[in-house]
Write a protein that binds this DNA or RNA. Structure first.
Lengths: 192, 192
DNA sequence: AGTTAAAGTGACACAAACGTCACTTTATAT
DNA sequence: ATATAAAGTGACGTTTGTGTCACTTTAACT
């Protein structure tokens, strides 16, 4: 009964991601998105009310995928394994980290649907946060993580480490290994 | 011989900074800046050719102040003192960190003057980078910093730690102290 | 008081993005 | 083959921002 679509939801979201990373939230335009998809602007407006709607919708999509992936963490019993798994997933989704920070300060407009999406997104954030928190607490319980460090800082540290820009092109494996190491043991030598 | 200015360069740059942080590079507009300064757009164009010119000019101004402040580091002889001083300066200029990252990917346009400013900025970055690198190397020489960690990562770690968002409002003193601590010794307990 | 020149203005022509909607295209179900 | 409805189009009016420039304002020097 219907005509063939010129793009899949996947393609649309992927392009959205690329444009968001390249131009930031305010620099993102539906015009450019339509152009990149070889489609007229009107087409996009068939599916989304406006930019805010589109982007919150996209963010939800990403968050869901991300949380899905993170769920697997419960397969691991020890903190060490969990942390390792966590860092791997986060490295694999590095760009997402930037998008999440970005999504945090999208101005909330008039739009009804977008307001709803914002709340849903906030819930997902909380979900993510609690997931990670449970890892940290396990670490403390298993006597691995120092208890003096404020929990939000532990999480913040992990989040930020992931997105350190590798401007000098250190080989990926070495880069990841070193970061995991510094997160655990810091930059200083042990004094004996 | 001349009329009174309605704003100082300082005020202009301060407003520029605020708007950049709020809206990002692409979201920044000369219209808004003029409005915030209670001045017509034409006035801004008396001093700057366009947005790119203005922003690179502003970045240079910030970088110069920053580097000036960092110079004092040579008053300290030991790595420990230098690192402490470094982190304090960086904390005091936290927002600048975000601006620097932002400045890194401003698209270079046609504009002649802006191109020049870009090169100057690049030079300042290098200057900053080398300053920090000398601290790290001192640390390695004085047997404090582990030598296995790639140098760019050490720097990246410091840069990123500074800007961890304190979403949960941990008191400033504790926050800073903890970060300095984690940078040095990591999140893990020492195993004995 | 009159002259000067820096400082500021606001209107103009242009470009980019917005959101809407009557209309066209086309795969499929009958 | 033809009716259907989802998919896509493109023109229209609006808003926001751009860069320019002839003009006005005003502090200070003579």
């Amino acid at each position: 009964m219907a005509r063939q679509k010129k793009f899949t939801t996947q393609e649309l979201f992927q392009m959205t991601k690329a444009l968001l990373l390249e131009h930031g939230y305010e620099g993102f335009s539906i015009s450019t998105l339509a152009e990149k998809l070889n489609v007229s602007r009107g087409t996009i407006y068939k599916y989304f009310e406006n930019k805010e709607d589109l982007i919150t919708e996209y963010m939800l999509y990403e968050m869901n995928k991300y949380l899905e992936e993170l769920k697997e963490i419960h397969q691991f019993a020890t903190f060490d394994e969990q942390l390792d798994f966590l860092l791997d997933v986060m490295f694999r989704n590095q760009e997402l980290q930037k998008l999440i920070e970005m999504g945090r300060d999208i101005p909330v407009q008039d739009n009804e649907k977008a307001k709803l999406n914002h709340e849903k997104l906030e819930a997902k954030h909380l979900d993510l946060y609690n997931n990670l928190l449970s890892v940290v607490r396990l670490g403390q319980k298993q006597g691995k993580v120092r208890e003096r460090i404020p929990e939000p800082l532990v999480l913040g540290f992990i989040f930020q480490s992931i997105v350190i820009p590798n401007h000098f092109g250190v080989p990926y494996e070495e880069w990841v290994k070193s970061i995991k190491d510094v997160i655990r043991h810091g930059m200083f030598k042990r004094l004996n």
